[in-house]
């Protein structure tokens, strides 16, 4: 099947097998290897990307489902050499060790902050429940997300990741994939 997908600002048109997962399309066809695969049961969240601004586990989305959509991966966050505030906060708070879960963790954190711009510790922990980390014990990740929240008020983030509209609180979870929760 032929699909057209915009990934990190570039439009791609490709023939893909219908069974191709979005994460395999990103990694194997587009070379977007910043997004990684950590499990095969949609539990770990390492492959989390944004599909039209909502986080999805890209192992749970078919490439064909992304047809006509915009995908943002960890590689598309920094603009003009400027890190996204969540990336910066992960660095500033030592919120990563081996770094394998980090792309998914950052993408999910951004989604969490677009739902709730000032989450308390509990909200962050609940919001990241679908992303596993084996190195950090999560404490510094929680700290980083809350730190980023303070830096992102208002308008500190890049345009593409800024929350738009007034109805963000009532946004429904993405209809595809296991994202969001």
């Amino acid at each position: 099947m032929r699909i057209t997908v915009t990934v990190d600002g570039t439009s791609y048109t490709d023939d893909v097998e219908p069974r191709t997962l979005l994460v395999h399309y990103l990694r194997e066809r587009l070379g977007k290897v910043g997004t990684v695969v950590g499990c095969d049961t949609s539990n770990c969240g390492a492959c989390t990307v944004h599909l039209d601004g909502h986080s999805v586990k890209s192992c749970s989305v078919l490439a064909v489902q992304a047809h006509g959509s915009e995908v943002t991966t960890i590689e598309g966050l920094a603009r003009d050499g400027q890190l996204h505030p969540v990336q910066q906060a992960f660095h500033d708070n030592h919120a990563l060790q081996c770094g394998f879960c980090t792309p998914g963790m950052i993408m999910q954190s951004i989604d969490l902050l677009s739902d709730n711009p000032d989450p308390d510790e509990h909200a962050v922990r609940e919001g990241l429940e679908g992303n596993l980390c084996r190195c950090t014990g999560y404490q510094n990740i929680v700290k980083a997300v809350r730190d980023a929240a303070h830096h992102m008020r208002p308008g500190a983030g890049p345009e593409a990741e800024r929350v738009t509209g007034a109805d963000t609180g009532s946004r429904t979870a993405s209809s595809v994939g296991g994202g969001g929760e």
Binding site: V33, G34, H91, G99
Partner: peptide, 19 residues
């Protein structure tokens, strides 16, 4: 000191074996 390792890891410029 904040880590030197982080810059690649937080931007997805990684070299995992499977990459």
């Amino acid at each position: 000191r904040l880590r030197k390792e982080d810059e690649r890891l937080i931007t997805g410029r990684t070299r995992w074996t499977d990459n």
